[in-house]
Design a protein around this nucleic acid. Structure first.
Lengths: 133, 133
DNA sequence: TTATACTCCTACTTATAAGGTAGGAGTATA
DNA sequence: TATACTCCTACCTTATAAGTAGGAGTATAA
């Protein structure tokens, strides 16, 4: 239950690698090899992080990626929202869909409570915290 | 992210119906109709709740299901574990699999912290709480 | 004593999304 | 101008979720 897909999994592994190697540009092929991930698949995930401006990149030979800001300033919630989508344990806690059982369902308030608590946990934790051994 | 599948979704709807109709036996066909769920699919989910002794049943005509104990004594965590499986946001927080990147990964401690906080939220909440409007 | 209305069990099918590939265009470096 | 990267889109493959089918077993009540 509540398991990350490989998107969040690989994406966080990638960000961890960038965090450890803060002072330089890191190429995708290096990370893919170090973490045993599919390069092509990783490319796509990383594209999302780029679009969301969590990382910056430099093209061409000798290029690569680095964090756009210190790991201390990147919230786990933000990363997971980008890679895994909106935090919504049930349909009624999501922004986009409406529950087909809305009228006969008493759970909405309870689930919003759960959602908000999890939201707080994930938004209080930064990548620096998460990667602290 | 962290969305329930229809197993947890339908299962909770079913339990909600039982909670509202505490004083009598409720047949599956009644719930399926009231909540617009597939009867055959619901049968399977309910089987799990039966095995886990959250509900009891009576066979034959006039039979049906009821909660095995008051909703106040049933933890949301327990229900979700039965229907959705163990709470494990990452491989390293699960009991059964080991992470292929264990040696190069610094996230285990952080993720266990997250997992344990979510665990507490879900185990503190009972069905009675969840269904309170 | 038999029709009925249920639970209970297993196997099968279908739909959807996750996970992964392919191929190549664009760009900076040496 | 070869090389080593990022970046982009479309495609394929596979796993799992979701739903169906068919019927055996059991208690009730006409």
């Amino acid at each position: 239950m509540f398991g990350l897909s490989t998107k969040g999994d690989y994406g966080l592994s990638f960000l961890e690698y960038l965090t450890v190697n803060q002072n330089r540009l890191v190429s995708l092929s290096e990370v893919a090899e170090a973490k045993h991930l599919s390069l092509k698949y990783l490319e796509r995930l990383v594209g999302k992080l780029k679009t969301a401006k969590l990382i910056t990149s430099k093209e061409g030979s000798g290029g690569g990626y680095c964090l756009a800001k210190p790991a201390k300033q990147i919230r786990l919630l933000r990363v997971l929202e980008i890679l895994e989508g909106e935090l919504a344990p049930t349909i009624c806690t999501g922004d986009y869909k409406t529950c087909p059982r809305q009228k006969n369902c008493a759970m909405k308030k309870g689930w919003w409570g759960v959602r908000n608590k999890i939201y707080r946990i994930l938004s209080q934790l930064t990548l620096a915290d998460l990667f602290k051994k």
